[in-house]
Design a binder for these strands. Structure first.
Lengths: 144, 144
DNA sequence: ATACTAGGTTACTTTTAGTAACTCAAAAGT
DNA sequence: ACTTTTGAGTTACTAAAAGTAACCTAGTAT
């Protein structure tokens, strides 16, 4: 055949990318990766998903306590967005004072697993990235 | 004993999340997932990585042509950020008019593979998300 | 009457994303 | 001799998003 195993893999990668990019099927607004990551790629969404993945069910202020630094508004905005995408289920108990419980849906659970995969990669490679940033910073100093 | 397989898996997930969250080791500024996703989770970075993954080496304006809708500034900003993190290598040829070539580093390649995993999940689950959004939109209408 | 509670909104400010026009230095066209 | 073109960017600006601080609600306890 004349192609090595590595070259074969590279071809597969290219095909996959092609499929991702021209994904006009299923009323997808556009590249699904972009769409997906654009939605929950921000830090608050990630924290919320991780915390809900850890704790099964959580109330608003419990979550607020667990996610250090988040404000009330940011938490509502984040949770609404996750609810909108069907990753989080929100249950209101009509009491006074109000009680609201949040939990991951099955979809949210499956996304969590993907996030953990990514976390493994991140942990494994973080030192490379940190090193690269330091190299870059030093180069920048020399330029000025 | 006395725990089912599912419960066992859940415990593993919890442990993993715990490890991610209190990651004070290795001078990590914070949760690596957040740090990582916060950097290249935006649409332009994703497109750039996918395009560089598809094409080996690309010049600035080639990339600009491939990523539809990106402006010059956004492309430079994106590429600089990826370069800073060591995901992309930038080579300048001191000619007139200038020539600059971009390519993925090994780190970038390995991230690309992760992105493709995520893309698989996204393609598999996009219809769920779209459906959830429609449900949510209808509920919102009723409220007003 | 005042304070507290949980789970938010509203109005405002700061950061970031994004656009349009300009630059640089040489080569080629008119 | 002047204008245009070329690639790879900057600079100066505007639109949009993220984030903060103060307020609301309705019932209960002091």
């Amino acid at each position: 055949m004349g192609v090595t195993k590595d070259e074969n893999q590279q071809v597969k990668v290219q095909e996959k990318i092609d499929k991702i990019m021209d994904d006009k099927e299923a009323a997808a607004p556009c590249c699904p990766v972009k769409d997906i990551l654009g939605r929950f790629g921000d830090k608050w969404s990630i924290y919320a998903i991780l915390m809900l993945g850890r704790n099964e069910k959580l109330r608003f202020n419990e979550l607020k306590g667990l996610i250090s630094g988040i404000s009330q508004r940011m938490l509502t905005v984040t949770l609404r967005s996750l609810e909108e995408d069907g990753l989080v289920k929100r249950t209101i108990f009509p009491e006074i004072p109000p009680r609201v419980e949040y939990e991951l849906t099955d979809l949210g659970q499956s996304l969590l697993l993907q996030l953990l995969e990514l976390a493994d990669w991140a942990k494994l490679n973080l030192h490379h990235i940190v090193a690269a940033r330091e190299r870059y910073a030093k180069q920048e100093q020399k330029r000025t």
